[in-house]
Design a protein around this nucleic acid. Sequence first.
RNA 1: GGGGCCGUAGCUCAAUUGGUUAGAGUACCGGACUGUCAAUCCGGUGGUUGCGGGUUCGAAUCCCGUCGGCCUCGCCA
Length: 611
Amino acid sequence: MNVAYNQRTHYCGQLRAGDVGKQVTLAGWVNSSRDHGGMTFVDLRDHTGLTQLRFDPKNKAAHDVARDLHNEYVIAVGGTVVSRGEWVNARLPTGEIEIEVTAIDLLSKCDPLPFQVNDDFEANEDLALHYRFLHLRRPEMQRIFRMRHAIAHAMREFFNEKGFLEIETPFLTKSTPEGARDYLVPSRVKAGSFYALPQSPQLFKQLFMIAGFDRYAQIVRCFRDEDLRLDRQPEFTQLDMEMAFVQRDDVMNIVEGCFQRIFKAALGIDIPLPLPRMTEHEAMERFGIDRPDTRFGLELRDITDIVRGVDFTVFREAIEKSGVVKCIVASGGEKLTRKVTDGLTEELRGMGGGGLPLVKVAAAGSQGGSPSSLPPSQGGIEGGLEFQTGIAKFIQPIASQLCQALGAKAGDTIFFMPGKYADVCKYLHHVRSRLGQILEVIPEGKWNLLWIIDFPLLVWNEEENRWDSTHHPFTAPLDEDVHLLESNPGKVRDKAYDLVLNGTEMAGGSIRIHRPDVQKKVFSLLGISDEEANEKFEFLLDALRFGAPPHGGIAFGLDRTVMKLANANSLRDVIAFPKTQRAICPLTNAPGPVSKKQLDELFLSVKMPSK
RNA sequence: GGGGCCGUAGCUCAAUUGGUUAGAGUACCGGACUGUCAAUCCGGUGGUUGCGGGUUCGAAUCCCGUCGGCCUCGCCA
């Protein structure tokens, strides 16, 4: 039976009770079939949803075909929309109707499946990626990629409205100094030379501004050859933009508008503007990280001064080495069993930490006989609070003072971290994140967007004995801090801004250096010689000497944005053909070997690693 | 490069913690059934427990190595 599948009248998610009586043509995949010997039902699926097909034995030809259908067969059907009467399926949008099929065309069969498409269980990821075309057929994947499209479309539309030009930048280019490892492409016509795939179009977009394009925005692929993570793929997509004659606020305002549009397009949510801002310093103090998740409390508290006098070696040594002691107070202690806190300690050890000192706050005498509980005369707390377990016996003398300063109450657990400031931040940020999960205090459905600003321009690199850029070498210092470049480079703050959503960095950018003298000064602080700077960035330094307008911009991760808004588990779920942790594509088996002829053409020979 | 978790039927998982013939659901094959909607019911096929070695009377289970996947530190915006 031929059915004109190129003349579908509806998609599978469209028909409603009001369509009863219509003659329709549908096409799609068999989601499931139920054969009763007589009456046979098939759920037909396309990207819009499901429609139930009814095959009555009285239409014998169609019924015979239907009885031999299997999941994921591709069919086209013609028939009449009929009411389901008393057999409505309330779980389907199309559940009030079904199609009484009079003609069916079996367009394509399907081998036994490696995993079910009409199922929710997570197939082994390696397998799912090997049969990615099947995995992508699942409604959940369809939803994610439709949202991805909606977000990308909203971005393009927004920037077009604001007068931004989309101009493409080269993929075969020269290594730029983002700091990550480059993917290299050998040159055939220039033996022994290599292109690098761009880590970002950073320098090109600055040249666009110097060229006078005024506003540029591009959705562009970027490449970085570093180890993969849940939220890191070797190739990823950014919305990259740059504006001329702007200050920080101008760029931030545009980006806020764009995110407002994105949230509306993807989720129908109205984000109130302007977005809150926080300095990097405040973020580190309160959250231990420059991309804080502000949806919940459990903030870090500095208690260096309170514990300064206490006779506890671990604290004393940290302070003597000009470190700090900070802590987190967690309520709802019954979830913090010994097993859980031991697990946290273990995690910190795995990160290179020394451990996780803690105490529990309890009503005095609540565990009479506990060796760590002391009467007020010996340091216990007047009014009925004392420390128990962990390091209680070492810091009992300041229990009262500490509880008061922290507002701790019975039932709380206090986690301490002594050490170098950077380490304390790192470990306590981890503890805070984990506590948020364990105590279930992270609210769902909350979208906390905020800006982090006033980063230090430079961070000291102890191994190399020089300064590194916090962001990249083209980030401009704050005007009022420029004079510190000579005297105290570590104190210089920059004109960078990061946009953070629920603890994930979504976007990062800055106002750029547009003066050659400042750029040279920064290069020298970074240990990049004039010679080296000329070799690597001659075209940029040239351009800065030929009338560079003040300019700045930002890049934001499209993949991460989709991952967050679609509530996907992994960046792999929002990239159509992603790589595994070893940067392998299980679908194509890339990367793979090439022929000797190809290598010869490129003047390459392969040296395998010795075991 | 380091740390952790995992690998059993095509797929998802189980196997009383070292014990006799490695099970279940699903998929697949055959049969029954005219209102199901993850249809149901009956029967059947399907296993080098990732791979290699070791310990043991005996290994899916313990040990070593190796391959692969995931998480993570380093690395990376």
